[in-house]
Write a protein that binds this DNA or RNA. Structure first.
Lengths: 194, 194
DNA sequence: ACAAATCTGGTACGTTAGTGCCAGATTTGG
DNA sequence: CCAAATCTGGCACTAACGTACCAGATTTGT
């Protein structure tokens, strides 16, 4: 169901943002009617009034979060200074786009990105959305490589992304996972001039 | 709790195998007391009698399944004929070890392997077990490359595994996911003589 | 053979979940 | 300004879950 009144639209949006927050904090499974309502400060029934099902709510939350991340990526592209694209800084930029900006608790944030990827396998209704966002991310990276004076083919972009993703999922089983460090190592090696 | 009588041990084992079957068919979340008991043809309470908690049962199921897969890998190594390790056949062998033997419904089986990887992030108690199995798999691949007359460094093994894993997780968001094909493409390219 | 240990299986409790219901309040459009 | 559309929010239903309980059956060790 979609809102028809301004206030309704605001409430609906509040629910989406609350759901996106839960997604970031606790993963897909944390998005539940009661949790979303409580976080948004709204009654339980508002979640079923504005969303036909929980899947709808999950979809809206993922779209909201995905768009926010893509906007972040575009901002990084716009402010990119081709002169300061030294090896390490550039690797870090690519990691920021693929894993999110570095933070002190980024293992958690990175885990979430990959839960999303894998969860798509069990939630086919998310595939079209994930497809679109993944495509935009690929294009963004393609543009960034070009802008940084290191143009690569779209195929190569896919390879590098796969390398990072694989490094991350393998790092998740470490006792003290540091997926970003693992990805940094592999990406740095793969991008070295040969 | 561990069984102390032969019959008890048999029942316990039946529960583990039932749980492993559920793991294969429906993922971690499919392992539930009632489902396991029903699949094993045993009463609900037997699951709490032989396993202190559901986590214990999940751990046992993962270990059972992991050992079965490692045994399969070792068998493939033992029967490996160095003379018939042409490019395509060898790539397929590596895929068999990393993704499981090829089947008509292997997108499902592959998905499960990667759910395991990612789920470890939210289930720290599985990490030691996953660590051990991952290590054995790496060693197995290392041996297989050597046996096939294409020795590589352990570091290179990690790279190739990451490449396959990354290709897989990215393939999962396709409309009709074929993770094996995606992995085959990337691995084939990475292993081409340069 | 018999006491102790182990196992059995039906039952029930407490939570949490998704979702449906509906009388009343609010907002909208003409 | 008022009828119609929209929204509100408290409540309750059903289902599924992990887990605990316990009287009785079975198996074990001596």
């Amino acid at each position: 169901m979609t809102a028809a009144t301004p206030k309704g639209e605001r409430r609906r949006q509040a629910l989406v943002e609350a759901a996106a927050g839960l997604l970031v904090d606790g993963g897909f499974d944390a998005i539940r009617h009661r949790a979303v309502a409580e976080r948004a400060g709204l009654p339980l029934a508002s979640t079923t009034y504005y969303f036909d099902s929980l899947d709808d709510l999950v979809t809206a939350a993922l779209e909201f979060q995905g768009n926010a991340e893509l906007a972040y990526g575009k901002a990084r592209l716009d402010e990119l200074d081709p002169r300061e694209c030294g090896g390490d800084a550039f690797v870090e930029l690519v990691l920021d786009l693929l894993l999110g900006p570095s933070g002190d608790r980024d293992a958690e944030a990175v885990l979430l990105r990959y839960e999303r990827l894998v969860a798509t396998g069990r939630r086919p209704y998310l595939r079209p959305l994930m497809r679109r966002m993944s495509g935009e991310l690929h294009s963004l990276l393609f543009d960034i490589f070009a802008r940084a004076g290191q143009p690569v083919s779209r195929e190569r972009v896919e390879e590098l992304i796969a390398l990072v993703d694989g490094a991350v999922v393998n790092a998740l089983i470490e006792i003290s996972p540091d997926p970003r460090a693992a990805a940094r190592r592999m990406l740095g090696k793969a991008m070295q001039p040969r």
